[in-house]
């Protein structure tokens, strides 16, 4: 085991995949400036700075992916993806299909988001569900350095466009990463805590929120199970359904706003396929339908906190569906 931060885990995955496959390259705003180790090892042709122009960065990645390269692009902050929506959604996501499978788009898009840095709504917008809704794209949003490394490796090897969202607040969080970390398959959730009374489903930084809440609930004699989705598309439906079948209660927790968010999908999935298992209504704890504020206390208030998760679970334990 090695201890490293999420940012270092991303660089480690890039380095390993670039050693393994000469068609992998990375470019974006400040990539060659910030990832000096990669620049030194792989040279200026494979580690490139770009103009501050997200659209052409993403378009260049799509064109390169269609014709033999495996580009990784760093678009810095998730709201900047708005400038690259056409290239990501209309080109990378659709052109495999529209070409009848003639072309494929093996590319990875990196972007940071989330509260923790006070950068406000044009740098912080958890817009991952927009891309879940777009065909042809895969989306991951891990919570630990080990998962970032393993999922980055898989994302680079995948023949589809994969968006990797990195929670800003997790960037400098250290964690254990196995020396010989293997690629982690997309679409596999991680069971972070086993429990029998309630299922907490989350991803990114609110996984930690759920684990803190689970510890507090344990003191009350409530045994919470915590599932870290890691991958939002494909979604590990089986892991969610298996857990809800056991606990009969579900709270979905994420920082993105509620309407049409990932939590809505998880709740609908459980309503459609595990309704008979439910002993209480499904709850969602999410950010509000508001832009993310810069002010630190407001930014913190935007994100579901452990005490809110505890209160939600406690309400469910009382709210027993009549047999």
């Amino acid at each position: 085991m090695t201890t490293m931060t999420v940012n270092d885990a991303i660089s480690a995955a890039l380095a390993e995949e670039m050693r393994r496959d000469p068609t992998v390259l990375i470019f974006g705003e400040g990539v060659a400036t910030k990832r000096r180790d990669l620049l030194e090892e792989f040279g200026a042709a494979r580690v490139r700075n770009t103009p501050l122009a997200e659209g052409i960065i993403a378009g260049t990645a799509a064109g390169a992916a269609a014709t033999g390269l495996r580009p990784v692009i760093d678009l810095l902050f998730a709201p900047f993806l708005c400038y690259a929506m056409d290239e990501i959604v209309n080109s990378a996501g659709k052109l495999r299909y529209l070409s009848g499978g003639q072309f494929q788009f093996p590319m990875v898009v990196l972007a940071m988001t989330g509260a923790g840095w006070g950068v406000g709504a044009q740098h912080n917008h958890n817009n991952e569900s927009w891309f879940v809704h777009s065909p042809g794209l895969k989306i991951v949003m891990p919570s630990t350095p080990a998962d970032f490394k393993g999922l980055m490796k898989t994302a680079i090897r995948d023949d589809n466009p994969v968006l990797v969202f990195a929670d800003i607040a997790l960037g400098y969080t250290p964690g254990e990463v196995p020396e010989d970390a293997e690629a982690i398959p997309l679409g596999k959730a991680a069971l972070r805590r086993e429990g029998t009374d309630v299922t907490l489903v989350s991803y990114a930084k609110t996984v930690g929120t759920c684990l803190q809440a689970a510890d507090a609930l344990a003191a009350d004699g409530i045994d919470a199970e915590v599932i870290d989705l890691r991958s939002l598309k494909p979604l590990d439906e089986a892991a969610i359904l298996r857990s809800v079948a056991k606990t009969g209660r579900l709270v979905v927790v994420h920082e993105a706003s509620r309407l049409c968010g990932v939590g809505a999908e998880v709740a609908a999935l459980v309503a459609e396929k595990a309704f008979a298992s439910l002993r209480a209504p499904v709850l969602r704890l999410t950010g509000p339908d508001a832009p993310a504020p810069a002010s630190f206390p407001l930014e913190q208030a935007f994100v579901p906190q452990p005490d809110a998760v505890v209160a939600a679970v406690q309400s469910l334990m009382l709210d027993v569906v009549a047999a």
Partner: peptide, 24 residues
């Protein structure tokens, strides 16, 4: 490689195709 009906989509992807010609 592409017929883009998004006006300008061909311009956005052309650089990547040029890059792959060079890199490969």
């Amino acid at each position: 490689v592409l017929t883009s009906t998004i006006v300008g989509g061909e311009l956005a992807l052309a650089t990547g195709v040029g890059l792959s010609r060079t890199m490969l």
